[in-house]
Amino acid sequence: TLDDSATICRVCQKPGDLVMCNQCEFCFHLDCHLPALQDVPGEEWSCSLCHV
């Protein structure tokens, strides 16, 4: 889900339109996540760090 609060991106440390991982609660810009996300993920989304 998009989170436009004062939360910062885990990768670039900047605020903005972010998606939050449902497991670790880290936030990412779509372009900062590795691999980059093309679209906003669904409600139950886990980042690539949680899939390691």
Rank of each mutant, 00 (worst) to 15 (best):
D3T: 02
G16N: 15
M20C: 08
A6K: 03
E25M: 07
G16W: 01
S46W: 10
C24M: 00
I8E: 12
H51R: 14
T7N: 09
L49D: 15
V40K: 08
H29N: 03
T7H: 10
E43P: 12
E43H: 14
P35A: 03
C21M: 00
S46A: 14
L49I: 12
L18D: 01
R10S: 15
H33N: 10
L2G: 02
V52Y: 07
C9V: 01
S48P: 15
L34V: 14
A36N: 05
D4K: 15
L2Y: 13
H29A: 00
Q23K: 10
Q13L: 11
E44H: 12
W45E: 09
D17A: 02
L37I: 09
Q23A: 05
V11T: 10
E25A: 08
S46G: 06
C32K: 01
P41A: 05
A36R: 14
D3I: 07
P15T: 03
V19T: 06
A36W: 03
L34D: 15
L34C: 15
A6Y: 05
D39G: 08
D39Y: 09
R10T: 12
D39M: 08
S46L: 13
V40G: 06
C21P: 02
H51C: 07
D39I: 10
L30E: 09
T1V: 12
I8G: 04
W45G: 10
C32L: 00
D4Q: 07
P41Q: 09
I8D: 03
P35F: 02
C24A: 02
P41Y: 02
E25F: 10
L2W: 06
A6W: 01
G16P: 00
S46R: 11
L18S: 01
V19M: 09
S46F: 10
I8C: 14
G42L: 11
S5K: 12
G16V: 01
E25W: 06
T7F: 05
F26K: 15
C24Q: 00
L49G: 15
S48Q: 08
V40R: 15
V40N: 08
C9G: 00
L2N: 13
D39Q: 09
P41K: 02
H33I: 06
E44N: 09
N22Y: 05
C27S: 15
D39L: 07
M20T: 10
D4F: 09
Q23P: 00
E25G: 07
C50V: 03
L30N: 07
E25C: 12
R10A: 06
F28D: 03
C50R: 08
V11Q: 10
L37D: 07
H29P: 00
I8M: 13
G16R: 05
L30C: 10
C12G: 06
E43F: 08
S5V: 05
P41C: 08
A36H: 09
D31P: 09
V19N: 03
C24I: 00
H33C: 15
G16D: 14
D4P: 10
P15A: 13
S48T: 08
L34N: 15
P35H: 04
H51I: 07
A6H: 06
A6P: 08
H51P: 15
T7P: 09
C21I: 01
L18W: 01
C21F: 00
R10D: 11
P15W: 01
R10H: 15
C47A: 04
H33T: 08
V52F: 09
A6G: 10
L34M: 10
C9K: 01
A36M: 04
C21Q: 01
T7W: 04
F28S: 04
P35L: 03
P35K: 09
F28L: 05
